[in-house]
């Protein structure tokens, strides 16, 4: 995000991202939740980032500029927000983002080892994506499902009681699905 402050006057022309129809409908639904004033508009920054990520897969510089425009905020502000929250992806990930909780309980139940073993099997290091673009494996903080640990979140969905075998099966299933 270099030259964030050096915004071109022709930013709308160079913009390569905008909401498609379903994203725009979702955004309109969120607009109704907040007051119709600049403060309420700013409350749309995080929802707009979410909607962009659902559509585009990650938060690119074009997404930042677009979100700033539709929420009437500055790109620098939007970038500051996007980088503060860990769930906003600043770069492309695999089709399936494997998020392994390794916090206290999940580690106690072997989740940290499942993470390490999965990385080995996929042939990636933490944070890397498999060559076919299918899987990115990352370690995350407590997912709030400690009673069924170890927990794995794949994109939005939770999978619990994860073992090496369970993950292997899941990875095979996801490959078939894709």
């Amino acid at each position: 995000m270099d030259n964030m402050t050096n915004r071109t006057n022709e930013k709308t022309k160079t913009m390569n991202f905008s909401f498609n129809e379903s994203s725009m409908n979702e955004f309109r639904r969120w607009e109704k939740k907040f007051p119709e004033d600049p403060a309420g508009r700013r409350s749309l920054v995080i929802p707009a980032l979410w909607i962009s990520q659902w559509q585009h897969g990650y938060i690119s510089r074009d997404v930042i500029n677009y979100v700033a425009e539709i929420t009437q905020t500055e790109p620098l502000h939007v970038w500051g927000v996007a980088t503060f929250y860990t769930l906003f992806k600043k770069e492309k990930t695999g089709k399936f983002l494997l998020q392994f909780c390794t916090n206290i309980t999940c580690s106690l139940m072997g989740g940290d080892q499942v993470f390490v073993n999965t990385c080995k099997k996929l042939g990636v290091k933490a944070g890397e994506t498999t060559r076919d673009g299918m899987f990115t494996a990352v370690e995350v903080e407590c997912l709030g499902a400690c009673g069924e640990s170890p927990t794995l979140q794949v994109n939005e969905k939770y999978y619990t009681h994860m073992t090496d075998d369970e993950v292997e099966k899941l990875v095979a299933d996801l490959r078939k699905m894709a």
Binding site: I104, C142, G144, C146
Partner: peptide, 11 residues
């Protein structure tokens, strides 16, 4: 925003 490690009641 249930995030305190160990907590899973609100979910």
């Amino acid at each position: 925003d249930e995030g305190e490690p160990g907590t899973f009641k609100d979910r």
